[in-house]
């Protein structure tokens, strides 16, 4: 697996043998704490994404300006994303070679990559200004796409453990 001619297997082998991977492998308690932090940042990402997108879809917080909801949620989203990436790298490195052969891991990495690009290159620049200038249809489509994306990231992630 990998992109074209580039095989990423050596990188995954290295991940598993480096210090980070060894710590995760040897200390079950540390690994479990990583998992727990990962889950809590998952909840935070869920909260900020839901509040943002459901507000754009006019489902929750209808009496609060959507700019306020979106801006505040984005700050916490960034923090949660940082923690979830850090703990995710830690968790994956302990089982890196298994991850390399797991199709759900790659589905997750792909959707995560698309998700990050979507948020920082498209959604954030679009929503930075006044929302009344933006066509409601565009706002709603963006919200649905964002919900779909982050649900996929979380669900494929959960399914990594089962396969």
């Amino acid at each position: 697996m990998g992109w074209g001619a580039v095989d990423l297997l050596p990188f995954f082998e290295w991940m598993e043998t480096n210090l980070l991977g060894q710590i995760g492998k040897s200390y079950g308690g540390v690994y479990a704490v990583g998992q727990s932090l990962h889950l809590m940042s998952l909840a935070m990402i869920g909260g900020t994404v839901l509040v943002t997108d459901l507000r754009l879809l006019n489902v929750v917080l209808r009496d609060v300006p959507s700019e306020v909801v979106v801006d505040n949620a984005h700050k916490w989203f960034k923090l949660a994303l940082t923690i979830i990436l850090a703990t995710g790298i830690f968790m994956a490195s302990a089982v890196a070679i298994r991850m390399y052969h797991n199709p759900f891991f790659w589905a997750k990495m792909f959707s995560l990559f698309v998700g990050i690009v979507f948020v920082f290159a498209i959604k954030r620049p679009l929503l930075r200004g006044k929302h009344s200038d933006i066509s409601p249809l565009v706002l709603r489509t963006v919200a649905v796409a964002s919900l779909m994306l982050w649900f996929t990231v979380a669900a494929t992630g959960r399914w990594i453990g089962f396969s």
Partner: peptide
């Protein structure tokens, strides 16, 4: 934003 959302 619209078209990338549709693709997603």
């Amino acid at each position: 934003a619209f078209y990338s959302s549709i693709i997603i």
